[in-house]
C-alpha cells in the first residue's frame, strides 16, 4: 500500500486539535521509542505510542480509528520517562476527547450487565466513565 504524505503544506487539523487539547508540542518528539518500550500495554496496541505521535504529526489517515489511545490507561510511565518532556498520557487523552466529542460515548460504556456492575468497585467505574465519555 502506498500512502502519500504532504509535509509542510496544508493544515493538519488533527495535529492542531491534539496540541490544543493536550498542551503538548508534538514536534518535540524525536522518536526514540522510550514510551513504547516502557508501556505495559504495548502488545495490545495497534500502533505504538511513538508511531501514533508520528502519524498525528504527518496527518496520516485512520488515526481516530486506532485502539492505542483507548488501551492507554494513563499510568504515566511514558510521560515520566520521556526524555523530551512530552506528557504522552495527555496526547492520548486528547485523542480520546476528540473521538468522544465528535462521536459520543465509547460503546464500551453501555455494554455492562447488572451482575458485572455489582462486582466492580466504584473506583473502576468512575475511572472508566471518565475515560470513555465526553
Amino acid at each position: 500500500m502506498t500512502t502519500s504524505i504532504r509535509i509542510g503544506n496544508g493544515r493538519n487539523e488533527l495535529l492542531q486539535k491534539v496540541e490544543a487539547l493536550s498542551g503538548q508540542h508534538l514536534a518535540n518528539c524525536y522518536q526514540c521509542g522510550t514510551c513504547a518500550a516502557g508501556c505495559p500495554f504495548h502488545q495490545a496496541m495497534d500502533l505504538l505510542p511513538d508511531a501514533l505521535i508520528q502519524h498525528v504529526r504527518l496527518g496520516l489517515p485512520g488515526i481516530l480509528e486506532r485502539q492505542t489511545f483507548w488501551i492507554c490507561a494513563g499510568c504515566d510511565t511514558c510521560s515520566d520517562r520521556c526524555p523530551r518532556g512530552l506528557d504522552i498520557a495527555r496526547i492520548m487523552e486528547a485523542l480520546r476527547q476528540i473521538c468522544l466529542r465528535e462521536g459520543g460515548d465509547h460503546p464500551a460504556l453501555t455494554q455492562l450487565e447488572r451482575a458485572d456492575l455489582g462486582a466492580l468497585p466504584p473506583i473502576a467505574l468512575v475511572a472508566s466513565m471518565r475515560r470513555n465519555s465526553g
Partner: peptide, 20 residues
C-alpha cells in the same frame, strides 16, 4: 512492582488486566 495493573480496564478490557 511499578507496572500498571490495568486499572479501570477491568470494566471492559479484562484481558489486559488478566495479563498484567
Amino acid at each position: 512492582q511499578t507496572r500498571c495493573c490495568g486499572a479501570y480496564h477491568v470494566v471492559n478490557r479484562e484481558n489486559l488486566v488478566a495479563e498484567r
